[in-house]
Amino acid sequence: MSEGIDKQILDSYLTALFDTDKAGALRVVQEALDGGLTPEQVVFEVIIPGMERMIGGMISDNLVTLSQHFLASQIAEEVTDRLIPLFATVPEVQGHVVIGTSHGDFHGLGKKIVIGCLKARMFQVTDLGINVAPEKFVDQALEVGAEVIGISSMMVHTATGERGPKRVRQLLREQGLEDRLRIIVGGAPYRFHENLFREVGADAWGDTAAEVPGIVARLVREVRS
């Protein structure tokens, strides 16, 4: 497929994402497959660039909205799940993340968006759901062999409370697991306070879901080194 056609496909896909037009975006994906793009090309040259445009401006310099993030992530997850079994070779898993919302927090949107972004970048993700006890984050991370624990919080008290990320950090310390597991946090409170992630004992935070795969990749490298 020529470079010109690829660009046209990507542009059409980005336009659909910008308009939060799910049917339109999925139609572009199907047409690309029908037109001869391989599943790998669709994932790596259409879906992932679409997600990456979410970092810092999308097509125009307008504010990228949560609904655009939501849609890009949702499509990324759906299309990646469908196309990975069709890849010529099994893709290398980039790392394993267990993710959930902090104890007492019932807001699952941010987590859902992050999961889509991670899956599209070939991370294995174990979704622990909402209102997750700190002990469960650690136990599940050990059980599945994850390198990273992701904790999402929409409210200040669930981000900073004693049953939130602080307790997960404490458990890692008590069990001598700090070299084996990293903590990444995200959610509204962290966007209003740039140092809050450190105060709750996390190793990193993600301002937007689209930038999380890059940060998680770094954390995985740290654990594996």
């Binding site: 910008f18 308009d19 939060t20 307008n62 504010l63 909205t65 949560l66 609904s67």
Partner: peptide, 9 residues
């Protein structure tokens, strides 16, 4: 709000 949806929406 503009945090959730774009102006057109």
């Amino acid at each position: 709000s503009a945090t959730f949806i774009q102006l057109k929406k």
